[in-house]
Design a protein around this nucleic acid. Structure first.
Length: 721
DNA sequence: AGCACGCCGACT
DNA sequence: GTCGGCGTGCTC
């Protein structure tokens, strides 16, 4: 008897074996889609190995036979399949879900691999004639005919049985659709001249061969130009390249720029694209077309054939780490895939992650600096505003307010960072101290004054703003703290003549809102821009002369292991944002803890020095990046279930040689009505942690307590909340 | 995750 | 007397 191991999309860390009919043994190879019975339903599985022969008589169980084979050649080639298996092992995630993450929805549902191979259904004259007559005997067929009467459709989108029946009766026929006319690619633009620094840095980026280069340079220093230089050569050589960006918002600008330089051989790939657009992009990559993909996280799973280079822009950004389910790091997967293609990797950032700096210090990665300014302490142009004892208005100290007035009066532009959206992070009763809290989370509701609602930023719950205190009836409910809305409101009274705009996820709801705003800032129409972190990511506004950071204090005292490094990255990125045009820039950072040692070090000695001592601190505490860390996360609706599960899991893990700390409750214990806790897992080496987890996961999955919780492994966590 | 089976409450 | 609640169990 022949069996084949497959991946099925379901949360079990197991392969599923199916019996292969003798006739299909020769046609099946790893990486093909097959239709299989699974429990009481039918689904599409992906083969993980070649069929294997097993002793017929000794088989303890009956295997179910596979159904249709959907591909005549592997959909996932050896390299991609190996990378997926690596990821399933490394992140201890079920292989079926890992494979599913790598395939566009359409392919997961059985869509043809190549657009050209996909037949369309066209109605025939005979078909048109019988729509009404068959309506009684075969209503489903009649419905399909009626649809086809309005126009042809891909066979894969039609119900299979009915399509088959109509074809047999000659009521419709199969044909390929007319090929879409593809516009000729525009001629690549002329490369712009490089600065001396860029030329030097470019020399440090390898042409070919696997190796990881950390390219450290502030935003606007021309990292992108360096990526594109190398990529232009790759594409000219008939190769493919991947440029990973942290978020969708950044892709349009980059796409535009890449197209100017590379002509038509540039495509985007991100979650905001429609299924069919993603499928289209997938097919072009699969066809081996020489091109550059500019994409977010999921683009790292595209079926590259001739990958010659990977560039990761803003590599420190936590968005490269998936924050739920299959918690992979696209940056790290990119390195794994590049290694398989023997292709070079560039990790670009003004503020490289601690892991990348760690790898550079051990010699695994190469460090190349682009801009001299990157080595400069942000403090050189950054002034600390001591907020202690100051009278704050709209969350701003008099110093910051005056600076804003001065810059606007001088015709400058200002950028103001506020770390929370909404009007105020809490609504409190002035008389009894009651505060509006979320029913489902251990969190305060945020007051959104414009919308007149209280919103929970953790679960999305909404409620009306109470007129009076629900606890004591007092009418004096007061806003506590400052969000972007409130700062904006204050600025309108502080600077009545100025044009003020707000950039946060609330204000950017409408499609195109960001493009409009960006143009208004670039044209100088907007004088003051208030916004959240979203402003810190990669956008270049040369007219900005003043940058204000309203507070970083929260991050300094956060329970999250990585809060301080993120704060340092934000401050450094932001500080690099002022005065890049002709004018000198000014950066003001407001804080109640001007003497905080980490903040001082960042401001006085710069990001690199800060990162070095943070790494030393981590090494002393045996934490990442010096020592590997994984979390076992669990959440449950019942208060005790998550803890009980983690207790049991801790026992299993300890028996397997991992150090397990906890269960520690998450800082916000209850979120969206679920109780959350985690186990911190460590071992002396990555291999040891890996092995302990691999063995333990199988046992943990079988634990009775596991069925009562939602759980998952988080290897190299981006946060510990 | 699906999906079905199974055993207890408010409806035709 | 049935529709339907979600607990429990299984998926090659």
């Amino acid at each position: 008897m022949w069996l084949i191991a497959t991946a099925v999309k379901c949360p079990l860390r197991r392969r599923f074996d199916y019996q292969v009919p003798e006739a299909l043994v020769a046609t099946l190879s790893p990486g093909m889609r097959i239709r299989v019975p699974f429990g009481r339903r039918e689904t599409i599985a992906v083969t993980l190995d070649a069929p294997r022969r097993v002793d017929d008589g000794g088989t303890a169980r009956a295997y179910r036979p596979l159904g249709e084979v959907l591909d005549d050649a592997p959909l996932l080639d050896t390299e991609l399949l190996a990378s997926l298996k690596w990821a399933a092992d490394y992140y201890h995630h079920p292989i079926g879900e890992v494979v599913a993450a790598a395939l566009p929805t359409a392919l997961r549902q059985g869509e043809a691999r190549n657009a050209a191979e996909q037949p369309w259904l066209h109605i025939t004259a005979a078909g048109r004639a019988v729509i009404d007559t068959i309506a009684r005997r075969a209503p489903a067929q009649a419905r399909l005919l009626a649809r086809l009467a309005e126009g042809a459709m891909p066979r894969s989108e039609a119900p299979r049985e009915q399509a088959k029946a109509l074809l047999e009766r000659g009521y419709c026929e199969q044909a390929l659709p007319a090929p879409l006319a593809t516009p000729p690619p525009p001629e690549p633009g002329a490369p712009v001249a490089l600065t001396a620094e860029q030329t030097a840095a470019l020399a440090g980026l390898p042409w070919a061969g696997f190796g990881v280069t950390v390219l450290q340079g502030v935003t606007g220093s021309g990292k992108t130009e360096l990526y594109l230089r190398r990529i232009a050569d790759d594409i000219a050589a008939g190769g493919q390249a991947l440029l990973l960006v942290p978020e969708i918002g950044l892709t349009p600008q980059l796409l535009e720029r890449a197209r100017e330089r590379l002509g038509g051989a540039v495509i985007g790939y991100h979650s905001a694209m429609t299924d069919s657009a993603r499928l289209d992009a997938w097919r072009r990559v699969d066809a081996g077309e020489p091109l550059l993909v500019v994409g977010t996280r999921s683009a790292v799973w595209l079926p590259f054939r001739r990958l010659m280079r990977v560039c990761v822009d803003e590599e420190h950004d936590v968005s490269f780490k998936q924050q739920d389910g299959f918690r992979y790091s696209a940056r790290d997967v990119a390195v794994v895939r590049a290694r398989a293609f023997d292709a070079p990797v560039v990790l670009g950032s003004a503020t490289p992650s601690l892991e990348s700096l760690h790898n550079a210090s051990t010699g695994r990665y190469q460090l190349v600096r682009l801009d001299v300014r990157a080595r400069e302490a942000p403090g050189a142009r950054l002034h600390v505003v001591d907020a202690r004892g100051q009278r704050l208005r709209g969350g701003l100290t008099p110093d910051l307010s005056r600076a804003l007035q001065r810059h606007v009066a001088d015709g400058g532009q200002a950028l103001l960072f506020v770390n929370r959206r909404g009007y105020a992070p809490a609504l409190l009763c002035h008389d009894c101290g009651w505060g509006a809290s979320c029913r489902a989370c251990d969190a305060r509701m945020t007051w959104h004054k414009r919308r007149g609602r209280l919103l929970c930023h953790h679960c999305g719950a909404q409620q009306a703003v109470p007129e009076s205190c629900p606890a004591c009836g007092s009418a004096t409910l007061r806003a506590a703290g400052h969000g972007t809305e409130r700062v904006e409101e204050h600025l309108r009274t502080l600077l009545p003549e100025a044009r003020i705009a707000r950039a946060d996820s609330d204000a950017m709801q409408r499609a195109g809102a960001w493009d409009t705003l960006r143009d208004e800032v670039l044209s100088g129409a907007v004088q003051v821009l208030v916004g959240t972190q979203m402003l810190a990511k990669g956008h270049d506004f040369p007219g900005i002369t003043l940058v204000g950071i309203v507070s970083v204090d929260q991050a300094l005292f956060s329970a999250d292991l990585r809060a301080t490094e993120r704060m340092a990255q934000l401050v450094t990125q932001v500080a690099g944002r002022a005065g890049r045009g002709a004018r000198a820039g000014e950066v003001l950072l407001q804080t109640h803890v001007p003497d905080h040692p980490l903040l001082r070090e960042l401001l006085d000695d710069g990001y690199e020095a800060f990162a070095a001592s943070l790494r030393a601190e981590r090494a002393a505490a045996a934490l990442p990046p010096a020592r590997p860390l994984a979390l076992l996360r669990a959440e449950s609706a019942a208060e005790r279930a998550a803890d009980a599960f983690l207790e049991a899991a801790a026992g299993v893990l300890r028996a397997r040689g991992a150090e397990a700390l906890g269960p520690v409750p998450a800082p916000m214990m209850r979120r969206a009505g679920r109780y959350r806790a985690q186990l911190w897992l460590q071992a002396d080496s990555r291999a040891a942690l890996q092995q302990a987890l691999a063995q333990a996961c199988v046992e943990i999955e079988a634990l009775p307590a596991a069925r009562r919780v939602r759980w998952g492994v988080d290897v190299d966590p981006a946060d510990t909340l």
